[in-house]
Design a protein around this nucleic acid. Structure first.
Lengths: 218, 218
DNA sequence: AAACTATTAAACATAATTATTGAATGGGAT
DNA sequence: ATCCCATTCAATAATTATGTTTAATAGTTT
């Protein structure tokens, strides 16, 4: 303990990154920033935090290298520093899922239906888009859609989806996606579409994963 | 805050996994367990922790699904629950490395030399092993070697390496590996080998990564 | 059965994290 | 220059993590 080894110092640094992932609010912020860069005020309200609190979480994540920031006029915009961070978060979700069986018991909501809604893989969607057999629906808010989306995707934020239903062709399958694998918008959208007689499924994950996989974006 | 959303509950669970990665002692334990399963007493002394403290760290990691345990006679053996955990730790290291530039300044030791020692990739080593052009040296302790190692590898724990030098062919390149990318044994081994006129390099990471990549093990 | 061993749990002191308040900073705008 | 705004800092209280010490547990061995 007197003189910690170089390796232990290094692992201490790694542990700081781990700690930064150790708070649900920060994971929510990370998911939001995976869509597009945002300022503090914006993030605070989206994550339902006070501005000062959000600022602290952001400072911590920037300190350990998860985020970077830039100034734009009066505001400071944060974004995820590197695609490796998205990989890290995805790996965390994958390991965390093991314990989700337990969570399912607790929340008994969206994620129980998860398997029933047969997610579509990126590969499959990619292929079916090429064949022109599918309507792709982006159910994220408009601003996130504008910052980048799947080619051919139609933006239909959840609260406006019902109005847009009449414009969707009924003879084609619909695939809905949103922010990521645990984003509830896509679940809700699929449920609503099915209620109205559509053949609907959701993408297994969201826009950031699609982009990170090197697939084309608009 | 009154009724947290299902997604927030889920992210809370994921954050618990993050928290479990948020302590350097636990990361050390994880690296040890990536080599082979071990009991508490063993881990405690290898990680320089009290038994009770090690037990607590282990309990926490088991609780969040990073580890599993089984009883064998009088002792309880822990192991990493799943290859996905190794992926997660690898992703954490990758992101943490960004800040290593800063760490390098602090520790100014092994990891500064890191780039100079030109690591060999798994692919390259695999190819050169197939062509029979290379001596592969496993510099981990004997027990870890016995639990699994690269095919054709020779076990030469660091403190015995000097004695074994005379038995190594001088006309072939040597590649040394140990526990993982931050295991110092391989750095030391390469330095020693070069001092004695060998053409030596180290594998970019260690045995667990080799095994996780689906490459053959003995 | 008792004695033994390896491991875990409980209780505690110390230290770190979290979220809140209110004040301070530091660029733009007027 | 002064004002205004977004953001950060500082101080606080509540909560949670860490690592000791001591006691309990649950199998093994005798």
């Amino acid at each position: 303990m007197s003189s910690p080894s170089p390796k232990f110092e290094l692992f201490t640094r790694f542990a700081e990154v781990g700690k930064a992932l150790g708070n649900p609010h920060r994971l929510v912020i990370l998911e939001l920033l995976a869509q597009r860069e945002r300022n503090v005020d914006d993030l605070a309200s989206a994550a339902r935090l006070s501005v000062a609190n959000a600022s602290q979480h952001l400072r911590l994540m920037r300190k350990v290298g998860l985020l970077v920031s830039r100034r734009n006029g009066a505001q400071i915009l944060y974004r995820v520093s590197d695609p490796a961070v998205l990989d890290l978060v995805a790996a965390l979700h994958r390991v965390g899922e093991r314990n989700v069986a337990e969570v399912r018991e607790i929340v008994g909501g969206y994620f129980r239906r998860r398997d029933a809604l047969e997610p579509v893989s990126r590969q499959e969607l990619s292929r079916r888009m090429r064949d022109g057999l599918v309507t792709v629906l982006d159910v994220r808010p408009e601003d996130e859609f504008d910052a980048g989306h799947l080619p051919q995707a139609i933006n239909a934020p959840l609260r406006e989806l019902e109005k847009q239903l009449r414009d969707l062709p009924k003879d084609r399958d619909v695939v809905a996606y949103c922010r990521g694998p645990y984003c509830v918008f896509a679940f809700e959208a699929v449920a609503l579409l099915r209620q109205h007689g559509f053949s609907a499924r959701r993408l297994e994950d969201g826009f950031p994963e699609w982009k990170a996989a090197g697939l084309p974006v608009a």
